Computed example of a mutant assay.
Amino acid sequence: MTQTLTSPTTGKTLVRAGVRATTLTRFDEAKPIPVRREFIEVVVFDSRLLSRGSQWGHAAIEIDGTVYSRAPILFFKGGYRKYLIGNTRRWRTKPDGTIGKGVYRDAVGLLMWVSLREKALIRDELERRVAVNAKYSLFDNSCSSNVADVLELAGIMARDPRAFGELTPVMPAELLGVLKKSNRLVETRNYKKGWEGGASANW
């Protein structure tokens, strides 16, 4: 039986030409939207009184096994596992083969989910910052401000919204507190002093 409908705006008679199902769910059910999830890790380290700029802690970000970290001297880029080991154990091997003191501090890793586009956006911006290697600043070019900047570029809140913008520097503890409440958080990882990344490691 042909069904007709009168248009409320033109008054024309409309005839149903056909019916097509566009989804597998009922019309009143929520429709799933599949999004490919990618993962990055933000790591926040304990403070060290003896390290310039690390009196309030330290922060870095990992993407696909590469770590990016703004240090007082340079914007560091390197292997993440080696970076973690060097920052959590008491002793480390220097480039010349001699043994030197390591950083030896605890760290918390925050595994965050992002879209493929967001991950590319974050990586591209970090690569740009590594290439520029602008002068370190506690207020707007520190380890934690760089992490917060690139996360917020992708729409992930990383600063306390009650802060006074650039007048208040982003501290690692603030970064940790905000990201722990994020709906992007997938897993919290604890890297204790002496972490070696062996069989008991998180990856």
Rank of each mutant, 00 (worst) to 15 (best):
T23I: 01
F76H: 11
F27N: 09
T98C: 08
G86Q: 06
L5A: 07
F75N: 06
E174K: 05
G79S: 11
L14Y: 04
D149A: 04
W203R: 15
T4F: 11
R20P: 03
W91I: 03
E166V: 04
S7L: 01
T88M: 00
E118T: 00
T98E: 05
E62Y: 07
Y104V: 04
T168I: 12
F164Q: 15
S54D: 14
V19A: 04
Q55A: 15
G18S: 08
K101L: 14
S115L: 01
T4S: 13
L50Q: 13
H58S: 13
S137M: 00
G197E: 02
G177N: 14
S182Q: 03
V150I: 11
R117P: 01
G100C: 04
T6D: 04
M157A: 00
R36H: 00
G18I: 00
K12P: 02
R48G: 06
L5G: 02
A21N: 06
R36M: 08
L185T: 11
H58N: 13
H58R: 03
T2P: 07
N190E: 14
G177K: 02
R70Q: 10
D124S: 06
N183T: 11
Y104M: 12
I61H: 06
L111N: 10
R90A: 13
T25G: 00
R117T: 09
T9N: 08
R189I: 13
V186H: 03
V42P: 01
K180I: 06
R129K: 07
P32M: 02
V114T: 00
M1K: 07
E174N: 01
W113D: 02
R123G: 00
D28T: 14
C143E: 03
L151K: 04
L5W: 12
L179K: 05
A59I: 04
M157L: 12
T66D: 13
M157N: 04
L110M: 14
T168Y: 05
K94I: 03
F45W: 09
R184M: 00
A163D: 12
D124A: 07
T6K: 12
W91N: 03
Q55D: 14
Q55K: 14
L121W: 06
T9E: 12
L138W: 08
R128V: 04
A134T: 07
L111A: 10
R16N: 08
G177R: 11
R128E: 04
R36K: 02
V67M: 08
R92E: 08
D160H: 02
E125F: 02
I85C: 03
G197I: 10
R16E: 13
K77T: 15
L176I: 06
G165I: 05
R159V: 06
A17G: 05
R48C: 08
G177P: 05
K135D: 13
E62S: 14
N141T: 12
D64N: 14
R26A: 08
G97M: 02
A17C: 01
R48T: 12
R37H: 11
G97R: 01
L138Q: 05
K82W: 10
S51E: 15
L167K: 04
G198H: 06
R16S: 07
D140I: 09
I33F: 00
R92T: 14
V170D: 06
